[in-house]
Each structure stands twice: as structure tokens, then as C-alpha cells.
Amino acid sequence: MNRFLFAGLALLAACNQTPPPTAAPVVRKDVPGPDIAALTDSTAPAALLAYGKQYPGSEVLIKTRLGNIRVKLYDDTPIHRANFLLLARKGVFDETMFNRVVKNFAVQGGQTYNARTIRLKRYRLPPEIRGTTHYHKKGALGMARYDDEQNPGRLSSNTDFYLVVGEKLTPDQSQAMTRRQLTPAQTKVYATQGGVPALDGLYTVFGEVVEGQDVVDNISNQPVESDKWPVEDIPLKVEVVK
């Protein structure tokens, strides 16, 4: 049990670290949609909701050197979904990589490194936590966040996402890892598929892997540096496929 809790705290700490100063990204200006550089915490929700209605999408393909990961985006997290679609179409994610990997816990992407790191205006997203339907089962797609001490509203990062790996848990283990009361269905999924209930209710889950979970697991098993950055970089590209 301590192993799970330690891993959870490791990713939570990573989500709370402010990204370093960075170089500007190349954003596809020929792609329709809001001007990313003009979005703020207050203007992003309405702009993204309007974008999502005009330019819908439901599935993306995350391409890596270890294989592809197909992800379904949830309809009832429309702001996070529209933001992910917008950044994918504008090529923002194509300059990023998996930057934090915790074995048997989760893999986090959306940043690059040093001079190659994106400087993207860090507007944030309001939480869209759907605790009873969207939770941190194996394969869940969630959004990280930063500066929790100055972020009482738990606003999500606009670029830093993670995919859950986790491990199978007994009902007692899974319930002990969260302050929320798990449903019988959730307890069964955590026992048969695995996941990280310690994150439930804390971060927005807005999609799930439908193909390529073996790729996520492979990324989770890659050798990492002391800061959990993979020894060999794992760049990624995101393509909207449906």
C-alpha cells in the first residue's frame, strides 16, 4: 500500500511544479479556432465550449516511437475535450514528449526539455470532475495542474496530461486510497483492471485509452532519471482521428 501512496504523491508533486521558462512553440496559424496566446483563465471556458461545438471530435491518436495510443474523449467534459482537440489540431502537442514516468502508476506528457520546452501561455481550465462515472481506472486520461497553494479552484493545466497505469487492488486497498466512497462497479474495475483511486476527485478525467494500453504500459516501464524523466526521450504527436 505504501508503494501506491508514494507513487501517487510523486505524480501529484510533479503536477504542482511550475514549468521552467521556455522557448516559443510553432503553432499552426492556418488551423481555425481561438488564438491560444489570447486565452486566459476567465475567457478560455466560453471560447473552448464554442470551439468544441463548431469543431467537434471524439478520438485522438497519440503517436510515439514505442507505438500508438488511441484515446476516446468524453462528451461530458466539454472544456477539457475541446482544449485537447484545439491544441492537437494546432500542432502544440507535436513539440512535446512524455516528461514524467512512474512505473505502475502513470505516464505524464505535454512538456519538452530545456531549450526545446514550449513557452505556451498557461491559461487554465476549470475542473470537470465526474467522480461516479470518470475515475482513475487503468487507461484513464487526466489533466495535471500546478501551483496548488495559489490554485484553490484546482484549475487544470492546459497542456500537461497523464495516462493511468496503476495496479490491481483489493476492495479494501482501493477504498483505503481515496476519501471518496467507491461504488461497487468502481471497486470491481480497480480489482480486475487496476488503477489509482488515490487521484479520484482531485483531477479531471476526460477520456480513456481504447487501443494501445500495452504502449502506455511499455512507456511506464522505461528507465528514468532521478526526476522521472525517461533516460531516452519519448516524443509524441497527437492527431485527431474522429
Results as ranks from 00 to 15, higher is better:
Leu12Trp: 10
Pro197Glu: 03
Pro56Met: 06
Asn114His: 14
Asn83Ser: 13
His136Ser: 04
Thr96Lys: 02
Val165Ser: 05
Pro197Ala: 04
Val224Glu: 00
Ala115Glu: 13
Leu85Lys: 02
Asn221Asp: 13
Gly139Pro: 05
Asp233Trp: 03
Pro56Asp: 06
Arg122Gly: 01
Gly109Ala: 15
Ile62Trp: 09
Leu66Asn: 04
Asn104Leu: 08
Met97Asn: 11
Gly166Asn: 02
Pro152Met: 11
Ile79Trp: 02
Asp147Gln: 11
Ser226Asp: 14
Val216Met: 10
Met177Trp: 08
Ala106Arg: 00
Asn2Gln: 15
Gln193Asn: 13
Phe98Ser: 01
Ala37Gln: 13
Glu95Leu: 04
Leu141His: 03
Leu169Ile: 04
Phe161Trp: 07
Phe84Thr: 06
Arg81His: 06
Glu149Tyr: 11
Ile36Val: 13
Asn83Met: 07
Ser174Lys: 01
Ile118Pro: 00
Leu49Arg: 11
Trp229Thr: 11
Glu208Tyr: 05
Lys63Ala: 08
His80Trp: 02
Met1Gly: 04
Ile79Glu: 06
Gly67His: 06
Met1His: 03
Ala191His: 11
Val101Ile: 15
Lys138Leu: 07
Glu239Trp: 06
Pro126Met: 08
Leu11Ile: 14
Gly67Glu: 02
Leu61Val: 05
Thr192Val: 13
Asp30Tyr: 10
Leu169Lys: 03
Asn2Cys: 06
Leu73Ala: 07
Val26Gln: 15
His134Ile: 03
Lys53Arg: 15
Leu87Thr: 01
Phe4Trp: 10
Ile36Phe: 01
Asp75Ala: 13
Val102Asp: 00
